Simulated scan of single mutants.
Amino acid sequence: MIGYPEAPKAWWLTRGMARISGVNLPRAVVEGWLQRDELEDLVTRCAACRRSADCEAWLARSASASSMPGFCPNKARIEALVS
């Protein structure tokens, strides 16, 4: 399993946001369309974000959302993986 034991909350939030867009991050790395260092950048950017509480609340109520919230610093990069 690909994960980030040093930043578990950021990993969980990044993975949750990616799921909203239909992206499975571990599978993306295994299948080669996302490099491990790119995934690390996503998790690092999430860990540096000061809106993790907003993110958690948004994920908790947005299971059926079709797009990520505008405040997510990884929005553009994750959504680019879909196209």
Rank of each mutant, 00 (worst) to 15 (best):
W11C: 07
I20Q: 05
E79P: 09
G70I: 07
S83H: 13
L34Y: 03
A7E: 09
G16T: 04
C49S: 15
E6Q: 14
A63Y: 09
V23S: 05
A18N: 11
A63F: 11
D41Y: 09
N74T: 06
A57I: 02
A48F: 01
E31Q: 15
I78L: 12
A47L: 02
A60S: 11
E40Y: 09
I2V: 01
R45E: 10
A80R: 14
E38T: 09
N74R: 05
D54G: 07
E56C: 12
P5Q: 02
L25Y: 05
V29I: 11
L34E: 05
V23N: 07
L34V: 13
T14Q: 13
C72G: 10
S66C: 06
E6C: 07
G70K: 14
S83Q: 13
K9A: 08
D54H: 08
A65D: 02
D41G: 10
R15W: 05
E40Q: 12
R51V: 06
D54L: 10
S67R: 15
S64K: 14
S52K: 15
E38Y: 04
L39M: 08
A7R: 14
W11T: 04
E79Y: 12
E31A: 13
A53P: 00
E79W: 11
S62Q: 09
C46H: 09
I78Q: 02
W12D: 15
R19I: 01
C49M: 09
R45D: 08
T14P: 08
V82K: 15
R45H: 00
S64T: 12
R77C: 04
L81S: 03
E56R: 14
W12Q: 14
V29Q: 02
A18L: 06
E6S: 13
P8S: 01
S52G: 10
A28T: 08
C49I: 03
P5K: 07
A7L: 08
W33M: 01
R51I: 00
S66V: 13
V82F: 03
E40P: 05
S67M: 07
W11V: 04
R15P: 00
A60T: 08
L39A: 06
A80Y: 05
N74E: 05
A10Y: 01
S64L: 06
L25M: 03
S52M: 15
L42T: 02
I78K: 04
R19Y: 03
E6N: 13
G3T: 12
G16V: 04
D54I: 00
L13T: 10
V29L: 03
L39C: 04
C49E: 13
E79L: 09
K9T: 10
G16C: 02
D41N: 15
S67E: 15
T44I: 12
S52Q: 15
G16F: 03
R36Q: 10
P8C: 00
P73M: 03
G16A: 11
E6D: 14
P73W: 01
I78M: 02
R45M: 04
P8K: 00
C49V: 07
D37Y: 12
A65E: 05
R36A: 07
K75G: 11
I78R: 09
D41L: 10
C49N: 11
R51S: 12
A80E: 13
L81V: 01
A18D: 11
L13I: 15
A80G: 03
V30W: 13
A10D: 00
M17S: 13
R45I: 05
R15I: 00
L42H: 07
A76L: 14
A57Y: 03
E38N: 09
V29K: 06
I78C: 02
S52R: 15
L42D: 10
D54F: 02
Q35S: 12
K75C: 00
E56Y: 08
